[in-house]
Amino acid sequence: MNTFFYRNSLGVVVIGCILMAATLNCRAQGHNDTVTPVFLTSTDSIGKAVGKADSIEVVSTVGKEALSTAYADSVRLVDNIHRNMAAWHPDPQRALWMALVLPGAGQIYNRKYWKLPIIYGGFMGCLYAMNWNNMMYKDYSQAYLDIMDDDPNTASYNKFLHLGKKIDSSNEERYKRIFKSRKDRYRRWRDMSFFCMLGVYALSVIDAYVDAELSEFDISKDLSLRVEPAVMTVDGRKSVTNIGAASFGLNCSLRF
């Protein structure tokens, strides 16, 4: 029991000494006008913080100036490109020769790229039609030759007959006329496809030349028709005097 009381008393005394020392320390510091926390009174840390803020502001300012300069340079470059493209005009003779050598080259030279699918689509369509009609022409020509001869082993015309149909003496003449007409028809369509392809080629050449020739043609929106009253004299000149010898009318002027 005494040991327990002694230990507790000793602890109370130690705690009391610590509290007294802290009180004296606070009174000693109380004579100062202001009490500033230790982490705010360090001049070195304040200086470092201010220097860091200044450096961040300088870097931010330099970055903004560099971005603005780069943006201005890019805008100036784009404007120069647009100005050069607007001032460029194709040479009609060069466009003509390029279109003659290679279909579509004149349109590429004139920078009308959207016309290329039309031109090459026309060529591909004409080539396909010419190949198909030529194949059908050969098949019907062979069938016509086989039906005209007397050899029973040559009967390629059977592939054109419907199921269950046969050629005999009763309908042989009719099938001869059918095969002949279809042979002539596909031959005519084959030749027409070839001439259509030549027409597409000629149109591509003409388009390239005319487009280059009209590249400097004024197509501004200043198209106006002006109608105003006019007083004309006997000799045809406008006049506001001598009204008695003048005639009245309308003066039309077209600007294009």
Rank of each mutant, 00 (worst) to 15 (best):
L10Q: 10
Y175V: 01
N84K: 08
R83D: 04
I18P: 00
P103V: 11
D54A: 14
A49R: 14
I108F: 13
N133C: 10
S253C: 09
Y186T: 11
P229S: 13
M1V: 05
A21P: 00
S74L: 06
T61L: 11
I108E: 01
N133Q: 09
C196E: 04
D146I: 10
P92W: 00
S204A: 10
L67G: 08
Y71P: 04
W97P: 02
A129S: 06
L10N: 09
G244K: 04
V78S: 08
Y71H: 11
T154F: 13
I219P: 02
D91Y: 00
W114K: 07
D151Y: 03
R185E: 12
G106F: 01
R177Q: 07
K221D: 14
K138N: 09
H89C: 00
A87D: 02
A246C: 11
A129Y: 08
I219R: 10
K48Q: 15
N110Q: 04
S204N: 15
Y175A: 03
W88C: 01
A72H: 14
R185T: 10
I15E: 00
D33S: 13
Y120K: 05
G121D: 05
V78N: 06
D139S: 07
L163D: 09
M136Q: 13
T3I: 05
I206F: 13
Q93V: 11
L225F: 15
F248T: 14
S74T: 14
M135K: 06
V75S: 06
Q93E: 04
A245H: 12
Y186M: 07
R237S: 13
D146G: 08
L250D: 09
Y113T: 07
A246G: 05
V240G: 08
N8D: 05
A86I: 09
N153W: 08
G125D: 09
M192I: 06
Y120T: 10
D168F: 03
G106M: 02
L24P: 00
D91I: 00
A245Y: 15
T233C: 10
L225A: 13
L116H: 07
I81W: 10
I219E: 12
P229I: 01
Q142F: 09
C26E: 06
Y144C: 03
R177T: 10
N131Q: 04
A53E: 14
N25L: 03
T23N: 06
R226M: 12
T43N: 13
R94G: 05
R226T: 15
